[in-house]
Design a protein around this nucleic acid. Structure first.
Lengths: 207, 207, 207, 207
DNA sequence: GATGAATGAGGATTCATTCAT
DNA sequence: TATGAATGAATCCTCATTCAT
């Protein structure tokens, strides 16, 4: 009697729409994206979209947030709860994480925020609070812990957690701009981690 | 003796227009920029714009190129002709250069290319050939020269000149997104140069 | 209780729009017609026009075709299926047909094709194939049949079906140019038919 | 000292401009003609054109009139002063005249008047008075004279001088529309003259 | 709830005309 | 005079949003 499939779709609609929207925004950017096109990809009528999202801008915000929400705390949790040594953590989970970013939805979000950010300061704030500040906080704590444990020495890195992320950022931008000129993103990040460890490790490894 | 309605200034117009266009594009991005608005800022009528640039797109390309043209070879020349030691050069002119980028028109170009690039592959190619490939080439040669001179050891950096630019890139993106959350860009770059030198220098300095 | 802002009438719209467009094109010609004005006359918004016709040109073509389609085969059928004698047919249905043209939409189409034809060769071809060539073919067959039946003699008219239509054409152009200087179109055509019959009939009527 | 070539050009300018304008109008029609393009073809600057013709419309009128002025009275004179028999005149000079029209500037004028006429009633009046009414008047007088001389019988043709011009008109329109589908214009006119003579001649020629 | 027909403000572009040089 | 740089009204077309069905 009941129509569970229909009911189910109804609940999943917003997600389906933001997914479709994400895909189109990623491809064309905000301005060049037609609401119509998003509706089509979501398999939904234009009118229905406006039932869930009052304007194109609101849809845009929902898209950004939906991507962010799914990622937040992914890394943070691991940082706090790992029992690896600092070096092992950096070379392992941390490097893995950084290598994944350039090809991930986060890259798309960065691009979208770069172009639309100025007109959506609230979105930027949202991104800052939920992603960047949390992430940087975790890195800072990680470095402090390394120092406390005697694994790391004191250095400017303590105040500049961003330095860890620099190659990830470069790789992300590179991929978006010069996709056809390959950059060995993994090697870049590994080398940077090597370099960083040489720099902040207490025991000197090089002979 | 009323003011003349306009001045004839054929020579200066293109520059005046691209300058105004750069400002507006920087502020609003390509899509959100109205040709009308550019005209207004250039102190020129809408119609005149089309006398110098056939379409909005052509204007966009001209703007990008005008920025690029003015910068090209700035760094490259110095790299080739300096008589500083490799370390001095890195800490001096090279660091200076990298510190200037985030606040320069180049940052704007990067943002514009990130959002409009996919629809203007020729522009991206242009940027690649005139800026990125030249710059990376110069860095590569600089590293090789350091090795030949016995100042640097062989390392992954030889194949990854990008690693040198990573903090500059991060700083650039950071500034565009989080202008209000200050990042000590200079310290970031200096620290990175320290780290890099530690990594590739032949004589170990740390005790 | 207020009037609805608009009605949904997908089926009727194209016809309504081409009808309105025909009227405006007839009055002002293609170039001087504003899409806006057509919309207004059709009681429709500007935007809706573009839902049914992608460009002003496409609308133009649709208008021409809609007029043509409604007329095609009107005469042709009668020619093929009449059981009147050739003379009766010429003086009756054929003369009737020719007298109607100058005041009909076909006259407007001719005017539009004359001014816009060079830029729409496909339209001219369409008009040729669907109207002119069919019509001339029918006239040719009619003359041949008259000869076979012994009603008409062989003459240059067999190869020049256009000669029959000459006064119709003159009348059409006259009306469009000199509407205010009356031309007795009917008498012109009747006289021409008289003349033609005298010329091609086998039995000499005049004493 | 003096600059005769310069002076001479100055006097010929209006003619040169209307000639160039005629060519462009003939090719593109009034609306699609750019003043710029006319200036270019006349080898003159845009600004100078406006010294001779205050607006594009005025230029248009001048063009029409310049064509008309050169033709007026061409035929008329001959009609009045010939010493040929009526039949000889019809088969000779008159037929020649009609055969020339379809390929002459007059054809262009007709096309232009058809499309722009409604917005230039004064031009149409001008054309009427200087060309059509004179021409028709001459034909009428010619027919009357034939009757007086006993060469022609009384007929409807007396009141319908247009009937003589019908094939010329058809040929003219045909050429403008269907240039690529050849019509034997000369044969059409000759046949029509045959037909007409058979119709209005007093002595019956056919056996 | 769904749909997509209908709306109309907004933006790029053209081109007749003006006017500083 | 003669030029063509400069103007801006006018026009086509797009697309986010609404709303009758």
């Amino acid at each position: 009697m009941s129509e569970p499939r229909y009911r189910r779709r109804k609940e999943e609609r917003p997600q389906e729409i933001t997914d479709a929207a994400f895909a189109v925004f990623a491809e064309k950017g905000y301005a060049a994206t037609r609401v119509q096109e998003v509706a089509k990809r979501a398999g939904v009528s234009k009118g229905l979209m406006y039932l869930y999202f009052k304007t194109k801008e609101e849809l845009f915000k929902a898209v950004i947030k939906s991507v962010v929400i799914r990622r937040v705390d992914a890394l943070v949790d691991v940082v706090e709860n790992t029992d690896l040594s600092s070096e092992e953590f950096l070379r392992g989970p941390m490097a893995e994480f950084m290598k994944r970013i350039p090809g991930s939805p986060v890259a798309v979000v960065i691009r979208l925020l770069l172009s639309e950010g100025p007109r959506h300061p609230d979105l930027v704030d949202y991104y800052w609070e939920n992603v960047v500040s949390k992430g940087l906080g975790a890195i800072s704590r990680f470095v402090e812990r390394g120092i406390e444990r005697g694994e790391f020495r004191k250095s400017a890195v303590s105040d500049l957690p961003q330095i860890l992320l620099a190659p990830m950022m470069l790789s992300t931008v590179w991929n978006m701009l010069f996709a056809k000129r390959r950059l060995d993103s993994d090697k870049l990040i590994d080398t940077h981690v090597d370099m960083l460890l040489d720099y902040i490790r207490t025991e000197t490894v090089r002979p």
